[in-house]
Measured scan of single mutants.
Amino acid sequence: MATGGRRGAAAAPLLVAVAALLLGAAGHLYPGEVCPGMDIRNNLTRLHELENCSVIEGHLQILLMFKTRPEDFRDLSFPKLIMITDYLLLFRVYGLESLKDLFPNLTVIRGSRLFFNYALVIFEMVHLKELGLYNLMNITRGSVRIEKNNELCYLATIDWSRILDSVEDNYIVLNKDDNEECGDICPGTAKGKTNCPATVINGQFVERCWTHSHCQKVCPTICKSHGCTAEGLCCHSECLGNCSQPDDPTKCVACRNFYLDGRCVETCPPPYYHFQDWRCVNFSFCQDLHHKCKNSRRQGCHQYVIHNNKCIPECPSGYTMNSSNLLCTPCLGPCPKVCHLLEGEKTIDSVTSAQELRGCTVINGSLIINIRGGNNLAAELEANLGLIEEISGYLKIRRSYALVSLSFFRKLRLIRGETLEIGNYSFYALDNQNLRQLWDWSKHNLTITQGKLFFHYNPKLCLSEIHKMEEVSGTKGRQERNDIALKTNGDQASCENELLKFSYIRTSFDKI
């Protein structure tokens, strides 16, 4: 039985969820670079991206490699990797027998973001014989899940209580170790020597080791999670996991709180800001991140802002960003909400898709409305799209047979046209069989910064309504002859009103 693990408890099935942008060198404390989270699957090609990484700022997932063999891993080693800020997950990587050479110096898994409450997941690794993470000293947050690894031993010899604050939620089941077939031998045991430290858990006094050649490092209890030197002297209180010299914040392997210019500090002093819960960055760093993602459509890219001495992905609820200094300031009234469309555009074809934009005031991208039916549609669209004030790209209304009016965009005031449909149009209306009105132009103002209007096959939309939009939106004169079809717009509506004058002759039985 794995020490510190839980057996036999019912657990939810383990679901495996399925960018080499360097964020800056980590400095003297770390020998390499800070790398983003990685999802490495199918083959070993991307694994080489770990070569210079000291910190993975995010998670590391290595999974679904069915053609790899043990010899493929023999020359692979990433000794610079010290810390993973989120979680480490391995799933069905064939041929991998140990992690001792792959990650010989991995010391800390912070667990800032977890995989279903777990910071370390080893699942269905069919050839893994031992973990071998002999320098792993601290899992700051989260638990361990090690399950269905039929060859995995050296679990009962690990004292997880020396690595985690609590072992109650560890789930370590259905491994070879369960069948008591392992016969784990710690260093020196074969020669009758006791080389590794022994600890007591559940009444068992057991030597602690990761492999037959690597003991588990056990520091004096007084050192807590700070770690200790090879001689057993406690590291500085700002260290986490390990250090090369005692009581020196510049000799830590990793930091308990924050890293700044080669030393570990309790908090980031001005003019620095907390970033990702582990390091200090200056304003320029946060500003660069903001600008890199301002026009990016890459998933996970955030326009970072500053709030409460932190550089964070977005302002919290009730705050909006001051564009001059990136500071989050309290909103006066309802907060603006910028919604970034991942692929640059979004099609609204149902109430469900409209709900995804609920509360958005600025759309960074283009909207395509293609709704053919739905219950209580006008009210639903207004509830979900009615706060949109600005669209950076274009607005396209296409084959939306259920629409009679666009009044559900009740606050839309600006279409920038930074991206144009077919390279020309910022407003595009095609084949809307029941569209009769755009907006009530006596109450609604709309500016279209650039781009043209396109109207074709809107049989109940009168040309007068379209011409009014040209005047109000500032697009009059931009359109070419064929942009607004004269014969297919309003051709099934009563669009022309003329005053009919009647004269009559009164007659009676005795007068003409």
Rank of each mutant, 00 (worst) to 15 (best):
D159R: 03
C286L: 05
F116N: 00
G58R: 02
K67R: 13
H307Y: 07
D248C: 00
L164Q: 08
N42G: 01
T221P: 08
G183M: 15
P187E: 09
T140L: 06
P197F: 08
G227E: 02
S284G: 09
R256A: 10
P270W: 13
D86A: 02
T189L: 08
E314G: 10
Y134P: 06
S296H: 11
P316L: 00
K100E: 10
N150W: 15
Y273M: 15
V55A: 06
S77K: 06
Y304F: 14
P336S: 08
T320N: 10
Y171I: 13
G227D: 02
K217L: 09
K191M: 13
H59G: 10
C239Y: 00
N195K: 13
K100P: 00
D247F: 08
C53T: 00
M125K: 00
D277C: 03
C315Y: 00
V55T: 05
P334M: 15
P79E: 09
G37P: 03
K176W: 08
P270A: 14
D184R: 14
G142M: 00
Y134K: 00
D101G: 05
R110T: 10
N117M: 04
L240T: 14
C315H: 04
L63V: 05
D248V: 05
C223H: 00
Y154N: 05
T45S: 11
C235R: 00
T107R: 00
L152Y: 03
T320Q: 13
P249G: 09
V200K: 02
R263Y: 11
F115P: 00
N202L: 09
R92H: 00
P79D: 07
T229A: 07
G227T: 08
P220L: 09
N150S: 12
P197T: 13
L106Y: 02
S323F: 04
K217F: 07
N43L: 05
Y87N: 01
P79L: 02
L326T: 05
C311I: 12
F258Y: 15
V144Y: 00
L233P: 04
L131T: 14
I62V: 11
N308H: 15
Q245V: 08
G262W: 05
C228V: 01
E168W: 11
L326C: 15
D101K: 10
N282E: 14
E49D: 06
L155H: 07
S98N: 07
T194N: 12
N138L: 04
L60K: 01
I222V: 11
C182P: 04
C196N: 06
I306N: 14
P334S: 08
N105V: 06
L63R: 00
Q299T: 07
C328F: 02
L102V: 06
I158W: 02
M137S: 13
L81K: 00
I62Q: 01
E151S: 07
E207R: 09
K80T: 10
V55F: 12
N42Y: 01
S244Q: 04
G203V: 07
C293L: 05
D165N: 08
K129T: 06
P270V: 07
R256T: 10
N170T: 09
N52I: 05
R74P: 00
N179A: 10
N295G: 13
C228A: 01
N242D: 05
Y304W: 15
Q276W: 07
D178L: 08
N257M: 02
H48Q: 15
L50I: 09
R162M: 12
F283V: 11
H28R: 04
L131N: 05
L289V: 13
M125Q: 04
R256Y: 14
R256K: 09
V218I: 14
V144A: 04
C153K: 09
P197K: 14
P313R: 09
V55Y: 11
R297T: 09
K217Q: 09
C335S: 03
D261G: 14
R69M: 04
C255S: 00
L89H: 00
M83W: 02
V305N: 03
Y94V: 04
N117S: 12
I109S: 00
H290S: 04
T250D: 14
N149S: 06
K148M: 02
G188L: 09
F205V: 15
Q299G: 04
R46P: 02
K224R: 05
F258E: 04
H212L: 11
K294P: 07
S161T: 14
L106V: 02
L136V: 05
A119L: 00
H302F: 12
P79T: 07
F103P: 00
I109Y: 00
E71N: 13
C252V: 00
D75W: 08
R256E: 10
C301Q: 12
H307R: 03
C335V: 01
D184Q: 12
V34Y: 07
D39Q: 00
T194R: 11
D178Y: 11
C234S: 03
R141V: 01
I62K: 00
L102S: 00
Q61L: 02
N105P: 00
L332M: 12
C53F: 00
S166V: 14
E151W: 10
C182T: 01
D184A: 06
S77W: 05
H307P: 01
G32W: 08
S296G: 10
P31N: 13
S98F: 02
R298P: 10
L63F: 00
G183H: 13
Q245P: 02
C264A: 01
N42S: 03
R110G: 08
P334W: 15
P36N: 15
P316F: 04
I84G: 02
V218L: 07
N175F: 06
Y154R: 07
H28V: 06
G37S: 11
T107G: 02
N43M: 06
I163Q: 02
G132R: 00
F73A: 02
A198P: 05
G111T: 00
